[in-house]
Design a protein around this nucleic acid. Structure first.
Lengths: 108, 108
DNA sequence: TGCCGATATGGTAATATTACCATGAAGGCA
DNA sequence: TGCCTTCATGGTAATATTACCATATCGGCA
């Protein structure tokens, strides 16, 4: 591994941080199908509108979603098709973790 | 999208949180090449040994790395080959963000 | 213009994360 | 056994994240 500057990892950590909240993962999951307005997402998440708006700001700052203005509403959409691969990776990690736990239980 | 329980996203957020720190990304990057002991990683990260140990605990709890004991040392290794795909995804997001910024600058 | 619905932002309290120091536990070796 | 090295853990202070309320902004419409 060639040493990369701290800045390199800071930038990547920013993206990971944007993914590190259940509500934001839910939002991304919903947006992976079609674009939705803040009101749709607010209802979906079930939190205060301002809270959802701030989550969207985080996702947008990380470059994971983008907003399209239409009248008084703003439709958000996913910006990164590759995120699907990440979600699959998380699934496989969780599956592996589950197997590991089962083995531990069996060994009792 | 079929509605998934909150728990579903909580579990995934835990994994994303484990990735959401520059030092931990640096550690994973190093471990992607070969297994390393805590002392190697402590020197690499340049933080207190206890700090690095805690980072490793976070990564291990998330199921992203595993430790192998050898004498008085513990060698850590990556547990999830699929993480590479995630890193590529982050790269592509960062690249896209850069392009977007350049376009904004050009539009001035 | 005046009001309303949709979003964003500022303020603030609760909670979580992080780093370091001090210390504990366990293995290797004289 | 006693000491040293390696790693983990408890404590604590600084910082970051998060949620909600209140409010500002902006577009549409009467």
């Amino acid at each position: 591994m060639k040493a990369k500057p701290r800045q390199h990892y800071e930038a990547r950590a920013q993206i990971a941080k944007a993914l590190a909240h259940p509500s934001r993962l839910l939002i991304l999951d919903a947006l992976s199908e079609k674009e939705l307005c803040v009101c749709d997402l607010t209802e979906l998440v079930g939190a205060d509108q301002s809270t959802v708006s701030k989550h969207l700001t985080v996702l947008k700052s990380a470059g994971l979603v983008s907003g399209r203005k239409d009248g008084s509403m703003i439709y958000y959409r996913m910006q990164c098709p590759c995120l699907g691969g990440f979600f699959e990776c998380m699934e496989s990690v969780l599956k592996t973790n589950l197997k590991t736990q089962q083995q531990l239980v069996r060994a009792l």
